[in-house]
Write a protein that binds this DNA or RNA. Structure first.
Length: 454
DNA sequence: GCATGATCATGC
DNA sequence: GCATGATCATGC
């Protein structure tokens, strides 16, 4: 037993494509629903492992680990990874003293036998169906980026900043929290501060892209190549692409690129950016690296003082969810923990020309997420629990949710079709649809170190 | 002149 | 029809 080769592993997997967990499960293990059960059932019923007598490595001789991961179907029919793929826990004490090649990430996760199954809301686990299995390895391009991600994590450990790690720090390989609860803490070697227990993970956005490439044959376009990635990090490459245009007006950039633009500003920037990154068509959302790393574009227009005219808005708030889910599962936490933003920054000069100032690849510092964002979340939560105060004012209906003077980072404000475009609060009252916003003064601070912004 | 409630524009 | 990026408009 356990002397399979790579071909065996995959051809045996094919025998269960389309089958439900219950149909695969020869030993009726699925009657006990526990986490990780699907993996156990596959090991036992597909590969014949006696899982009670085994502890770790699945296909030891091949150095392959078996993992299962849920996919979900979206309203538009596409599929997405339901979650990140959590790998091994990071032992900060040990990981500090290794190189990428000898790291626990690389030695344990070089090659993964990955089973995709379709998760369905509300359905029992037994009904979930296996869609496909793949041997997950990393392309040379991905590996360059993953190696750089590992270096970023490693560097934080070496600088005594393991407690400041955030998933948003990196592109594909993340350090996600993992523990029984938010209070699972570990020692780190170069600081007395206890750090949250974290595990290496392949980000949800990375898993989504991998799943779509295998199951939907999605075609995406890379903006870098392996040669370039050997020389520079992805972030450096991005800067090199945009740097030649710094100091030019939107019109000058258009002329320079041979584009004739008379559309609205928003689509102009999209077209310019596509051209600068050399994307065919105008599809910024089909850039492979951005899709895998969950990099989101935001254009920022600064006034002469370097402050955006408007705050930056995000998704509409689902107040019922806000009240029900803990902070670590909330939408606002997940947005800032897992998104990298690519700010494309322009500034008005004295003649009202819009001048390109540069870009910034940014993710919110963990400190701010655990500080101000948590504070905002908690304040809203408490008010939802007690009942939101709605009062008629001279300018519409005023609420007592945190405003822009709350903590200097974020606030809550309406965003709707009009004042009558409402949703129900958990307490039953109706409120104009609301969004959370990053204060314009906070955004100004984030981009204040971009070259040319004064 | 900014904060804040309201609303527009676009794309799916 | 709705979500989301973007912006308006007025009271303080």
């Amino acid at each position: 037993m356990n002397e399979y080769n790579r071909d065996d592993i995959l051809s045996m997997a094919e025998t269960v494509y389309g089958k439900s967990v219950k149909d695969i499960d020869k030993k009726h293990r699925s009657e006990k629903e526990t986490k990780g059960m699907i993996g156990h059932i596959i090991e036992e019923s597909v590969y014949g492992f006696d899982i009670n007598s085994r502890s770790e490595a699945d296909f030891k001789e091949l150095g392959i680990e078996l993992k299962t991961t849920p996919l979900k179907r979206n309203k538009n029919g596409s599929i997405s990874a339901k979650e990140r793929l959590v790998l091994n826990i990071i032992n900060y004490m040990k990981e500090a003293h290794v190189t990428f090649e000898t790291s626990s990430f690389w030695t344990k996760n070089q090659e993964i036998l990955l089973y995709f199954y379709l998760w369905e809301k509300g359905a029992p686990i037994q009904n979930f169906k296996v869609l496909k299995a793949v041997l997950l390895t990393y392309s040379e391009e991905d590996l360059s980026i993953i190696r750089n991600d590992w270096e970023i994590i490693h560097h934080k450990i070496l600088s005594g900043k393991a407690h400041e790690l955030s998933e948003g720090d990196t592109m594909y390989l993340g350090a996600c929290t993992k523990g029984v609860n938010a209070k699972s803490m570990r020692q780190q070697p170069f600081s007395p501060i206890l750090a949250k227990q974290r595990a290496y993970s392949l980000k949800q956005s990375y898993m989504t892209t991998i799943a779509r490439q295998h199951l939907d044959s999605e075609e995406l376009e890379r903006i870098t190549d392996k040669r370039e990635l050997r020389e520079k990090s992805f972030e450096e490459i991005l800067h090199a692409r945009f740097n030649p245009y710094i100091g030019m007006s939107v019109e000058e950039i258009s002329q320079n690129l041979g584009l004739e633009l008379n559309s609205a500003f928003k689509s102009k920037v999209q077209q310019l950016t596509s051209k600068i990154l050399d994307i065919r068509g105008n599809k910024l959302d089909s850039i492979e690296e951005f899709s895998k790393a969950n990099i989101v574009f935001k254009t920022i227009r600064l006034n002469k003082k370097g402050v955006p005219k408007e705050s930056m808005s995000f998704k509409q708030i689902d107040f019922k969810e806000w009240l029900e889910l803990p902070f670590e599962e909330s939408e606002i936490y997940n947005t800032f923990e897992t998104t990298k933003f690519l700010f494309v920054v322009f500034q008005f000069d004295d003649e009202e020309n819009l001048i390109f100032k540069g870009i910034k690849l940014w993710n919110m510092p963990e400190e701010t997420i655990q500080g101000e964002i948590y504070g905002l979340w908690k304040d809203v939560r408490d008010k939802l629990e007690k009942g939101v105060k709605l009062e008629k004012s001279s300018r519409g209906i005023k609420n007592n949710l945190p405003d822009s003077s709350f903590n200097g980072v974020a606030h809550i404000r309406p965003k709707a079709r009009n004042a009558e475009d409402k949703v129900q609060l958990p307490d039953g009252q109706m409120i104009t649809k609301q969004t959370y916003w990053l204060n314009s003064s906070y955004v100004a601070k984030i981009v204040s170190d971009i070259d040319g912004v004064e």
